[in-house]
């Protein structure tokens, strides 16, 4: 078997909040293989955000071991963590986090600005353009975030996450700010990417959204309490068709 993308062994994270020690994560073992689409669920305070921050190399574990694509993250310094994020991880956030007053294309180029070695300006532009076309926004490359709908902004964010060809796409509540139809569209993009081989790890508290993943992990009080394959898996194309029919029915009704 090849190297797992994510390998957490007895991962612990403790924060010091004033005089109190907060045990955010109390020993988690999790392995994510290449090609998986995993949803992490849990109530707020369950430790899922801490888990995501660590998997995203934004933070280091205070106990246990975390290997990302075979690299032991615990031993890296700030700059090495930054490089690792740049090369191996693509982030998609709940609040999109695009740069305001900056075109979709320039937003997509952002991770490439920090890549070492860096590509030429024209290569960066071409790669960003390709990424935007992948999420169906090739026509709107020169739009700024405030000229785009929420769903379109999230697509730009996904395109941005893809430009450095990451090993893992990390999504933190990617549909939290979106209506149900756009949520399904975004999940459709994730399913397409996953079908093409991208490993995706997604945090959500909506069971409905989690059902688009292949595997579901539920956390509570800093521990994994359930880890299973998704039973009846949603297919974005089908769900979207269903939704459109329902809306049409509503519209037809007097």
């Amino acid at each position: 078997m090849s190297t797992p993308i994510v390998q957490l062994e007895d991962f612990k994270k403790t924060y010091q909040s004033g005089d109190i020690q907060v045990h955010a994560v109390r020993g988690v073992n999790l392995t994510v293989q290449a090609g998986e689409f995993i949803a992490v669920m849990g109530a707020s305070g369950s430790g899922k955000s801490t888990l995501m921050n660590t998997v995203g190399c934004l933070d280091r574990p205070s106990g246990g071991r975390f290997m990302l694509d075979g690299v032991d993250v615990s031993k890296l310094d700030r700059d090495q963590l930054a490089d690792l994020r740049n090369q191996k991880i693509g982030f998609v956030f709940q609040g999109f986090h695009l740069l305001a007053r900056t075109s979709a294309l320039e937003n997509c180029e952002l991770p490439m600005l920090y890549a070492r070695p860096s590509k030429s300006a024209s290569a960066q532009k071409a790669r960003a353009m390709k990424s935007l076309e992948q999420v169906g926004l090739g026509q709107r490359f020169d739009h700024t975030p405030n000229q785009l709908s929420g769903g379109q902004q999230q697509r730009v964010a996904i395109a941005r996450a893809l430009v450095n060809d990451p090993k893992l796409l990390l999504a933190d509540e990617p549909t939290g700010n979106l209506d149900s139809q756009t949520s399904i569209e975004i999940m459709g993009i994730f399913q397409q990417l996953n079908d093409a081989g991208m490993t995706i790890m997604m945090v959500t508290h909506e069971l409905d959204v989690a059902s688009y993943a292949k595997r579901m992990v539920v956390m509570r009080d800093g521990r994994i309490v359930r880890d299973e394959q998704v039973g009846p898996r949603h297919n974005a194309a089908e769900e979207l068709g269903k939704l459109t029919r329902e809306q049409a029915a509503v519209n037809l009704a007097p």
Binding site: G56, Q87, R160, N164
Partner: peptide, 16 residues
């Protein structure tokens, strides 16, 4: 601050 956060998240080093 948030812009800086995004930049750091996508791999900018402190030096950048």
């Amino acid at each position: 601050t948030r812009e800086i956060g995004v930049r750091l998240a996508v791999g900018a080093r402190g030096r950048d």
